[in-house]
Simulated assay, not measured.
Amino acid sequence: MTDSVESFSTMLRKALGDRIAADAATFLDMMADDGVMEFPFAPPGLTTRLEGKAAIARHLDSLGEMIAFDGMGEPTVYATTDPDVTIVEFEGFGHGVSTGEAYDQRYISVIRTHAGRIVQYRDYWNPLVVLRALRGGAAVDALVGGVADHG
Rank of each mutant, 00 (worst) to 15 (best):
P43D: 09
I20L: 12
I108C: 13
K14Y: 10
G100R: 11
D29S: 08
V130A: 06
A133N: 06
V36K: 01
T81V: 14
Y107K: 03
G146P: 05
F39N: 02
I111G: 06
W125G: 01
D70G: 15
P127C: 01
V77E: 08
K53A: 04
M31S: 07
L131V: 05
A24H: 08
F39R: 00
S98Y: 06
A68Y: 12
N126A: 02
V119W: 04
G64T: 07
S7T: 14
V119Q: 01
A102M: 12
L12H: 09
D70E: 15
I87C: 11
F39S: 02
T10K: 13
S62M: 11
A55W: 01
L134G: 09
P127E: 02
D33N: 06
H150G: 07
M30N: 10
A32H: 05
A115N: 14
G17W: 05
M30A: 05
Q105G: 08
L128Y: 13
G146K: 03
P44F: 08
H59P: 00
D104A: 15
W125T: 03
P43F: 07
K53H: 04
S9W: 10
V129Q: 11
D149V: 11
W125M: 01
W125Y: 13
M72N: 12
F8A: 13
E91N: 13
G136C: 11
G116K: 00
P44D: 15
G64N: 07
V130P: 00
L60T: 02
A139D: 15
M11H: 12
A42T: 04
T86Y: 09
E51W: 00
V97M: 10
S98C: 09
D82W: 07
Y124Q: 00
A25M: 04
L131F: 00
D141R: 07
R13L: 11
T81S: 14
F27P: 10
V97C: 11
L46Q: 12
M31L: 09
Y78K: 10
N126D: 15
V147G: 03
L50P: 00
D34K: 00
G35K: 05
V88M: 07
N126P: 01
M1H: 15
I111D: 09
T47M: 05
D82M: 02
L16G: 05
L46Y: 11
A55G: 00
S9L: 09
V85P: 04
V97G: 07
R112F: 03
M72Q: 15
T81A: 14
A115C: 00
Y103R: 01
G145S: 06
E74G: 09
Y121P: 00
V140K: 05
R49A: 05
R19I: 06
I118S: 01
A139T: 12
D23T: 06
A25Y: 05
F39Y: 13
A15L: 09
D29N: 12
K14F: 13
V88R: 02
D82E: 14
T47C: 02
M72S: 07
M31I: 04
P127L: 06
V5M: 13
G100E: 10
I108E: 10
M72P: 08
R132Q: 07
A21I: 07
R13T: 14
R13C: 13
A133F: 12
E89T: 14
T80N: 10
I108W: 07
T76N: 11
F69R: 08
D33S: 04
S9Q: 08
